[in-house]
């Protein structure tokens, strides 16, 4: 237990997503439109914490386990984060 409720904040969350959309129609008068989108989620690979744990010991780099021994233990704070830079491709098709 570390203090009053709601007295701590996660670090600032920020990321940059970029998308390039390629229209595949040459003729805009057609009954349908379709396009290809290339995206990169979190372009600069920011490690945004998803949640933080206070109950584990560091065994080695990026290997954390809950201690069994209640006498000799040394907790460290660990964070989980999801994807860093993640590319994606999508195809959109719609009727006019």
């Amino acid at each position: 237990m570390y203090g009053e409720k709601n007295n701590a904040r996660l670090p600032t969350y920020h990321r940059l997503d970029v998308t390039a959309i390629f229209k595949l129609n040459r003729n805009n008068e057609r009954k349908y439109q379709h396009e290809l989108a290339l995206s990169i989620f979190n372009l600069y690979g920011r490690k945004n914490p998803l949640f933080i744990n206070f109950n584990k010991e560091a065994q080695a780099a990026n290997n954390f386990k809950v201690p069994s021994d209640l006498i000799n233990r040394e907790y460290s704070i660990s964070q989980f984060y999801l994807f860093r830079a993640t590319p994606s491709v999508s195809y959109n098709f719609r009727w006019q």
Partner: peptide, 24 residues
């Protein structure tokens, strides 16, 4: 794999705590 991907690593930002008189 992409859907499940998550990494755990040490978090180094200091804890901001304030004393409380909650009895344990």
């Amino acid at each position: 794999l992409l859907l499940l991907l998550a990494c755990e690593e040490r978090f180094n930002d200091p804890l901001n705590t304030r004393p409380t008189n909650l009895l344990v």
